[in-house]
């Protein structure tokens, strides 16, 4: 797991130039720098993303949002996509030390991530 992968743990946050707009399916995320849109297709995922910065790891954010463990791989995949497109970022320069079991789970997760991005 690289330092830029949220499933590796550490404290993450929503990029300060990203806005979330509530929608019936969850939220629409818009990045003011890259002008890219992302669809957060679950209200639970929206809660997780909003609260990432308040937790020492994404796993703690899943837990706090009441996300059942069997959904963690899908959520981890969704966060990985958001991280790759810069929608979320590590909130500390070196905050990537916590290895969770979810990273392994995420690698095994199916390719059907719940957060497709729009070019």
């Amino acid at each position: 797991m690289s330092a830029s992968d949220p499933v590796a743990g550490g404290r993450w946050r929503l990029h300060p130039r990203v806005a979330l707009r509530p929608e019936p399916f969850g939220a629409l995320a818009y990045h003011y720098d890259s002008r890219k849109l992302n669809f957060l297709r679950s209200p639970d995922l929206v809660r997780v993303v909003q609260n990432l910065a308040h937790h020492p790891s994404p796993r703690a954010a899943f837990d706090d949002a009441g996300v059942a463990e069997h959904r963690w791989p899908a959520f981890a995949s969704a966060l990985a996509i958001l991280a790759r497109s810069g929608f979320i970022e590590p909130s500390e320069p070196n905050g990537t030390t916590l290895q969770d079991d979810i990273d392994e789970a995420a690698e095994k997760a199916s390719m059907t991530a719940p957060v497709p991005s729009r070019p």
Partner: peptide
Amino acid sequence: MTALTEELKGGLDAPIC
């Protein structure tokens, strides 16, 4: 067809574009 397309067919609270 993705589920996202189905969700968008139901409309958004504000336009994307």
